[in-house]
Simulated scan of single mutants.
Amino acid sequence: MTPPTTDGAVSNKQAKKQRRREPPPDPAPLPGLVDAHTHLAACGGRDADAVRAILDHAESVGVGQVVTVADDMIDARWAIAAAEWDERAFAAVALHPTHAAELDDAARAELETMVTHPRVVAVGETGLDHYWPGRSEDCASPAVQEDAFRWHIDLAKRVGKPLMIHNREADRDLLDVLADEGAPETVIMHCFSGDRNVARECVERGYVLSFAGTVSFANAAELRVAAELVPDDQILVETDAPFLTPHPYRGQPNQSYCLPYTARSIAETRGVADTVMADLLGANARRVYQLPLR
């Protein structure tokens, strides 16, 4: 370990590590926002008190409701529990594409029951991930992911709830599967990461594009072009917490209370007032997920 400098100060490397462990400061409040995609359990929300504390913190800066999302069956149970513990939380349930190999008969039966829960507002996150196969022994193969994705598409159509998409380095294959299966009425491209051409195709298909903290990153010029061209009624904002903390706090722990940073970045990109953007983003989320008004 690098020792402290002789004057008692820590090294730049130590300071950077320490900063990465610290949560960002509270943003200035921006009322009306909804976090369209977070992971409360991964943020520490594994009991009613912890969920309440996370959501109290978020509400103090204007984030009144959140959709907490599952990666696997354990997370799906946590997500529904959180939505039962606190009226500000709603759930989305599915098997993440990297966990697609876990979609056995028992998981299918449980998910089919879960999606009928009144606090479950979407089927997700599901989709395709071409980044992790070959990098992780536990990741489902692309073929297994596609089979599971097709099943989730059908499930969303059967229950009439939005389909929440995870897409990592699989733009063309994912869009082709959606076209082949026939997309549900509402498709949400969670943490949109495509270029302007993918954004235009998604917009033309009527999909909703949800932007996370990545849209504020210095190297995300193309993503900001995508965020600028999306029509007013097809854009959402999310944290994907505890990941993807927005600039200038990239790499630090993320939570729903950080959402105003990303909303303000989108407002700047689109050339509108932050309060106008917040009202629009919140209204879109409440409409897309059919959330109760607050």
Rank of each mutant, 00 (worst) to 15 (best):
P4M: 06
P4T: 04
V10S: 14
N12Q: 13
R21L: 15
E22Y: 05
P27M: 09
P29C: 05
G32P: 12
V34I: 13
L40H: 11
A48D: 12
R52I: 03
A53H: 10
H57K: 15
S60E: 11
G64R: 14
V66G: 09
A70D: 11
D71R: 07
I74L: 10
W78S: 13
I80N: 03
I80L: 06
A81Y: 02
A83V: 07
R88A: 10
R88Y: 10
A89L: 12
A89K: 11
A91P: 10
A92V: 07
L95E: 09
T98L: 08
L103E: 03
A106M: 06
T113G: 07
H117Q: 00
H117R: 01
R119Y: 00
E125Q: 10
P133K: 04
G134E: 06
C139R: 11
A140G: 07
A143R: 08
A156T: 03
V159I: 15
V159K: 03
G160F: 00
H166P: 08
L175E: 14
L175S: 06
A179N: 09
P184Y: 06
H190K: 07
R196W: 07
N197R: 14
N197Q: 12
E201Q: 15
R205L: 12
A212R: 06
S216H: 06
A227G: 15
E228A: 15
V230L: 10
P231M: 07
I235A: 10
L236I: 07
E238A: 05
T239V: 05
D240A: 05
H247K: 08
P248M: 06
P248D: 08
L259M: 02
P260Y: 02
P260L: 08
D274A: 15
T275C: 01
A278C: 01
D279M: 08
G282F: 00
R287I: 01
Q290G: 12
L293N: 13
